[in-house]
Design a protein around this nucleic acid. Structure first.
Lengths: 216, 216
DNA sequence: CTTCGCCTTGAACGATCAATCAAGTGACGT
DNA sequence: ACGTCACTTGATTGATCGTTCAAGGCGAAG
């Protein structure tokens, strides 16, 4: 495959290296060598390393649907099944890399302590897209979840579980920690499902307890 | 307070700086200046920067009970209350630092991509101690949780939730994301509590479904 | 052919990094 | 008084960092 587009090759190479080694530990020289590009070309397109990072975050964001969700959801119709199919994809990523790499955004989010607003926004944008996809599944699940359950909040919690599970699996180099996180989340969903079924068979009781989100 | 112990001053200083800026972004020179120590002294005690990191991880491990759990649990007897009191302490840390810093171990765990076994073991040891403390609470909760619920797995899930919630709160610079994670976890615990109460009033049914952990 | 502008080349720069080391200090045992 | 040794001093090292820049290639427009 020929790749005449230097800019794109740089972004993809940097994406891979940042994923594998983190942002701070990936040197410009390494990116240049991996992409077979000279420093002048890089700095022609990106004024600084941080601008390259921003381009990487954009590229990742662009790829969330076609590269992540689409393949993960191939042949899966059940909306809640889609949620766990996506988690299964991260599991595969962990297993394939001996529990080294999974979600590049999460790693970058905790590595970058700088307050640079554009970088943070790039990370946040990725998280929002991911959560939005899960939220869509939960909305599609309709009556299988409690009626007044805040779908967005639960979707954020799925991200919480995924990232926390990945962190532990990486630290212990054991995918069982990720499996446990997913298993507990599954338990939570089971409870939610039973709750929805129970209140459906007992229509419109008054007591309006429910998982409402706090104001933000 | 006088501090004649150079070694200890180095460890505490490094602990603080690693917490604030991460490991890779904290230079030896910065540690030396902050601790008012010369490089020769540092390298007298620690052969390399990584050895200093190991000492920091040890020190943090030593401090988990006296510096973290003890103050978080002061005046709290309810075991499940202790779990959420600990989470509340991380919340306070987030609020106090404008959502910059909370759990130093989690940040380091995702920053350090190196496979150095001793470092990973230092991180894992800290996680294990934390999970062990939560596990103790869950065991104390006794009948308020389903009888055959795996306490260790749920304790690991509490860590998952905390770390995932901190990651999102940091990225969005908004503690509401941490609050949501804790709120969802609370919802899960509510279900577990109701489940325990229900099966207690209906003693010893046969169907032994339950949150068993996978083999590891 | 000339000119212009995009893109590439790659040596070089100053800053900063972790780490070194020869020289020294001072408390302590003998 | 002397030797020993744990500890300190701080200049210095070589490597590596992100970044710069003068020079040149090259296709398209005039």
């Amino acid at each position: 495959m020929e790749s005449p587009d230097t800019r794109q090759r740089l972004v993809f190479t940097a994406l891979r290296l940042f994923w594998e080694k983190g942002y701070g530990s990936t040197s410009i020289a390494e990116i240049l060598q991996s992409a077979s590009v000279n420093s002048g070309s890089l700095y022609h397109f990106f004024p600084s390393k941080q601008d390259l990072l921003l381009a990487v975050l954009d590229a990742y964001h662009e790829g969330i649907y076609p590269m992540l969700l689409e393949p993960a959801w191939a042949g899966i119709d059940d909306p809640i099944g889609k949620v766990f199919a996506l988690l299964a994809r991260y599991r595969k990523s962990l297993v394939d890399t001996d529990c080294f790499y999974a979600c590049p955004i999460g790693s970058l989010a905790l590595e970058l302590h700088e307050p640079d607003p554009p970088v943070r926004e790039g990370l946040a944008k990725n998280f929002r897209a991911w959560v939005g996809a899960i939220e869509g599944c939960l909305k599609d699940a309709a009556a299988r979840l409690p009626r007044n359950l805040d779908r967005r909040s639960v979707a954020e919690f799925v991200l919480t579980t995924m990232e926390g599970g990945v962190m532990q699996a990486r630290t212990f180099r054991d995918v069982a920690y990720f499996d446990n996180a997913v298993g507990q989340l599954k338990g939570y969903f089971d409870y939610l499902g039973r709750d929805a079924a129970a209140s459906a068979s007992r229509p419109t009781r008054k007591r309006g307890r429910s998982n409402k989100r706090r104001s933000r």
